[in-house]
């Protein structure tokens, strides 16, 4: 009875006792969720257009951010470094398409997945070889991104009805805005433009797309480039909150449960999934974590996804999986 109370009642009592802290946790969770969602967005882009599950998206985030910071440290002005970093992601996209994906057309998806794991390893080695393994500081101010924070003191939300205290980092707000802009732009790109239609055609049926004159190779280079730009944006945002280091790569694995929740092919799904995972794991860590000794953030996301999967194997927004024999 006591155990039930500590698990099912006590955390909610804590939430009610300090609403401002609860709101702060919610905010932190949403921001983390948005960053997961940005990584997931890169996955979705490539999966939608080629059916490749791009495991390397996480390392692409690190690689993009490192190129930017590395160039800046080499004396290149921040704006030029940003453009060059975009160019590097473009070269990477062409290389991946020309050297890897082109040769793996029509292979089973598990082979494609493993090739991106190989790509991940290559990029880890390559990145460390060039930029070194030490964490670097993101050039937040030089890029014109806001720093500092706003302190809100909503009355009546604090402990015992006193004034509350919520701290909003400006960079987090910027991250949220950028995420929203990016999703909107990508949504328009996919649904309204010529290339977007071609992308959807390729995703639907490779052969049919080829027969009406859509170049698969060109389309793939474009999506990898788009995913590279998303990776760069994610890298900047994430780097501004902590350091730019290869540890991010493990964090990027969190995008997998996000994708599972959202469904592999849905852009809004990636955002909603990201928010659910981000908020879920922060709430879990703060209010339920102490019951089992803390640190549950590392696996809670996967378990949430696992439970969802058992009930809805195609995710929240995914297309229904139909199998033929």
């Amino acid at each position: 009875m006591n155990a039930l109370y500590t698990v099912f009642v006590d955390p909610f009592v804590q939430m009610g006792a300090q609403p401002d802290f609860f709101l702060q946790v919610l905010w932190e969770g949403s921001v983390a969720g948005i960053l997961y969602a940005l990584i997931a967005l890169g996955f979705v882009l490539i999966f939608k257009a080629s059916g490749v599950f791009n495991f390397a998206q996480g390392i692409m985030v690190v690689f993009a951010a490192l190129s930017l910071v590395g160039l800046y440290e080499a004396g290149v002005p921040a704006w030029l470094a940003l453009i060059l970093a975009i160019a590097i992601m473009g070269v990477l996209a062409l290389a991946v398409e020309g050297l890897v994906m082109r040769h793996l057309v029509n292979q089973p998806e598990i082979i494609l997945l493993m090739s991106t794991i190989g790509l991940t390893y290559f990029l880890i080695g390559f990145g460390e070889f060039i930029f070194g393994g030490e964490p670097k500081v993101m050039v937040t101010e030089e890029l014109g991104l806001p720093t500092g924070s706003t302190v809100l003191e909503p009355p009546g939300l604090g402990r015992e009805g006193g004034p509350g205290l919520i701290i909003l980092q400006h960079i987090d707000i910027a991250a949220a805005v950028i995420a929203v802009v990016m999703v909107t732009v990508l949504g328009i790109f996919f649904n309204k433009t010529r290339i977007g239609r071609a992308l959807r055609a390729v995703a639907d049926d490779h052969q049919a797309a080829l027969s009406v004159g859509i170049s698969l190779n060109q389309i793939w280079a474009i999506v990898w480039f788009a995913a590279g730009i998303v990776a760069l944006a994610t890298g900047i945002m994430w780097g501004a909150r902590s350091d730019v280091s290869f540890a991010l790569e493990i964090v990027a694995l969190k995008a997998l449960p996000v994708l599972i929740l959202g469904g592999f092919t849905s852009i809004p799904g990636a955002i909603v999934g990201g928010l659910i995972i981000g908020i879920g794991e922060k709430l879990g860590e703060i209010y339920w974590g102490p019951l089992v000794g803390g640190g549950i953030e590392s696996w809670l996301a996967y378990v949430i996804a696992l439970i969802f999967l058992l009930f809805r194997p195609q995710g929240l927004f995914g297309e229904r999986i139909i199998e033929r024999v």
Partner: peptide
């Protein structure tokens, strides 16, 4: 020793891709 590790990563990754393409 560090460079060896990086090279190992790179070669491993490249080999994985090579094998998946050439000899799955």
């Amino acid at each position: 020793a560090e460079t060896v590790q990086h090279l190992t990563f790179m070669i491993t990754g490249a080999l994985i891709i090579f094998f998946l393409i050439a000899e799955p």
